[in-house]
Deep mutational scan, measured.
Amino acid sequence: LKTAGVNTTDKEMEVLHLRNVSFEDAGEYTCLAGNSIGLSHHSAWLTVLEALEERPAVMTSPLYLEIIIYCTGAFLISCMVGSVIVYKMKSGTKKSDFHSQMAVHKLAKSIPLRRQVTVSADSSASMNSGVLLVRPSRLSSSGTPMLAGVSEYELPEDPRWELPRDRLVLGKPLGEGCFGQVVLAEAIGLDKDKPNRVTKVAVKMLKSDATEKDLSDLISEMEMMKMIGKHKNIINLLGACTQDGPLYVIVEYASKGNLREYLQARRPPGLEYCYNPSHNPEEQLSSKDLVSCAYQVARGMEYLASKKCIHRDLAARNVLVTEDNVMKIADFGLARDIHHIDYYKKTTNGRLPVKWMAPEALFDRIYTHQSDVWSFGVLLWEIFTLGGSPYPGVPVEELFKLLKEGHRMDKPSNCTNELYMMMRDCWHAVPSQRPTFKQLVEDLDRIVALTSNQEYLDLSMPLDQYSPSFPDTRSSTCSSGEDSVFSHEPLPEEPCLPRHPAQLANGGLKRR
Rank of each mutant, 00 (worst) to 15 (best):
D166N: 14
D166Y: 05
R167T: 12
R167G: 12
L168V: 06
V169I: 13
V169D: 06
V169L: 14
L170F: 15
L170I: 09
K172N: 13
K172T: 13
K172E: 13
P173S: 03
P173L: 10
E176A: 05
G177S: 07
C178S: 02
F179C: 05
V182M: 01
V183M: 14
V183L: 06
L184V: 14
A185P: 01
A185T: 09
E186Q: 13
E186A: 04
E186G: 02
E186D: 09
A187T: 14
A187S: 15
I188S: 10
I188L: 11
K192E: 13
D193H: 10
D193G: 11
K194T: 10
K194I: 06
P195T: 08
V198L: 11
T199P: 09
K200R: 10
V201M: 10
K204T: 05
M205V: 01
M205L: 10
K207T: 02
K207R: 11
S208A: 07
T211K: 04
T211A: 05
E212V: 05
D214Y: 08
D214G: 03
D214E: 11
D214H: 01
L215V: 02
D217H: 06
L218Q: 02
I219N: 13
I219S: 12
S220L: 03
M222I: 14
M224L: 15
M224V: 15
M225L: 14
M225V: 12
I228F: 13
G229R: 12
G229W: 07
H231Q: 10
N233Y: 15
I234N: 13
I234V: 15
I235L: 11
N236K: 15
L237Q: 13
L237R: 15
L238M: 09
A240S: 04
A240D: 11
C241F: 03
C241W: 03
Q243H: 08
Q243E: 09
D244E: 15
G245D: 05
L247W: 03
Y248C: 12
V249F: 03
V249D: 00
V251E: 15
E252V: 08
E252A: 15
Y253D: 00
A254D: 02
S255P: 10
K256R: 05
G257C: 06
G257S: 10
N258K: 00
R260Q: 01
R260G: 01
R260L: 02
E261G: 04
E261D: 06
Y262D: 01
Q264H: 15
A265P: 06
A265D: 07
R267W: 00
R267S: 00
P268L: 03
P268S: 03
G270V: 11
L271M: 15
E272K: 13
Y273N: 04
C274W: 14
N276S: 11
P277L: 06
S278I: 06
S278N: 08
N280D: 08
N280H: 06
E283A: 05
Q284L: 06
Q284H: 07
S287F: 07
S287P: 15
D289Y: 04
L290R: 01
L290Q: 08
V291G: 07
S292F: 11
C293Y: 09
A294P: 01
Y295N: 12
Y295C: 14
Q296R: 02
V297M: 01
V297A: 07
A298T: 01
R299L: 11
G300R: 01
M301T: 02
E302D: 15
E302A: 15
E302V: 06
Y303N: 12
L304Q: 01
L304R: 00
A305G: 06
S306A: 09
K307E: 11
K307T: 13
K307M: 12
K308Q: 11
K308E: 11
I310K: 00
H311L: 00
H311P: 01
D313A: 01
D313N: 01
L314M: 06
L314Q: 01
A315T: 00
A316D: 02
A316T: 05
N318Y: 02
V319A: 02
V319G: 01
L320P: 01
V321M: 03
T322I: 14
E323A: 09
E323G: 15
D324A: 10
N325S: 10
N325D: 10
M327K: 10
K328N: 14
K328T: 14
K328E: 07
I329T: 02
I329L: 12
A330S: 13
D331A: 00
F332L: 08
F332V: 02
G333D: 01
G333R: 00
L334V: 02
L334R: 01
A335G: 01
D337H: 15
I338T: 08
I341F: 12
D342Y: 12
Y343C: 08
Y344F: 02
Y344N: 01
Y344D: 00
K345I: 02
K345N: 02
K345T: 03
T347A: 12
T348P: 02
N349K: 15
N349D: 05
G350A: 01
G350D: 02
R351L: 14
R351G: 03
L352Q: 02
P353A: 01
V354A: 01
K355R: 03
K355N: 11
K355M: 13
W356G: 01
A358S: 02
A358T: 01
E360A: 03
E360K: 02
E360V: 05
A361T: 04
A361S: 13
L362S: 01
F363I: 11
F363C: 05
D364Y: 05
R365L: 15
I366L: 04
I366F: 08
I366T: 10
I366M: 05
Y367D: 02
Y367H: 05
T368N: 13
T368I: 03
H369P: 10
Q370E: 04
Q370L: 14
Q370R: 09
V373G: 01
W374C: 05
S375A: 07
V378E: 14
W381G: 08
E382K: 06
E382D: 04
I383V: 04
I383M: 14
F384Y: 15
T385S: 09
T385P: 03
L386Q: 11
L386R: 09
G388R: 04
G388A: 08
G388C: 02
S389P: 02
S389A: 06
S389C: 03
P390T: 03
P390R: 02
Y391N: 05
Y391C: 04
G393R: 02
G393A: 12
P395R: 10
P395H: 12
P395S: 03
P395T: 05
V396M: 11
E397G: 14
L399H: 14
L399I: 12
L399F: 03
F400S: 09
F400Y: 04
L402M: 04
L403R: 02
K404N: 10
K404R: 11
G406C: 00
G406R: 01
G406A: 03
H407P: 00
H407D: 00
H407Q: 03
R408S: 00
D410Y: 12
D410V: 10
P412A: 00
S413T: 09
N414S: 13
C415G: 02
T416P: 13
N417H: 13
E418D: 12
L419Q: 11
L419P: 00
Y420C: 00
Y420D: 09
M421R: 07
M423L: 00
R424G: 11
D425H: 12
D425V: 08
C426F: 00
P431T: 01
P431H: 09
Q433E: 05
P435A: 01
P435R: 04
F437L: 01
F437S: 00
K438R: 14
K438N: 08
K438M: 14
L440V: 05
V441G: 13
V441L: 08
E442D: 10
E442G: 07
D443N: 08
L444V: 01
D445A: 13
D445Y: 14
D445E: 08
A449D: 09
A449V: 08
T451I: 14
S452F: 06
N453Y: 11
N453K: 11
N453D: 05
L457M: 12
L457P: 11
D458E: 06
D458H: 13
L459Q: 13
L459M: 12
S460Y: 07
S460A: 11
S460F: 05
M461R: 12
M461K: 06
P462A: 05
L463V: 09
L463R: 10
D464A: 08
Q465E: 06
Q465R: 11
Y466C: 08
Y466N: 08
P468S: 06
S469C: 10
S469R: 11
P471T: 09
T473S: 09
S475R: 11
S475G: 13
S475N: 12
S476F: 10
T477K: 14
T477M: 07
S479T: 14
S479F: 15
S480P: 15
G481E: 14
G481V: 14
G481R: 15
D483V: 15
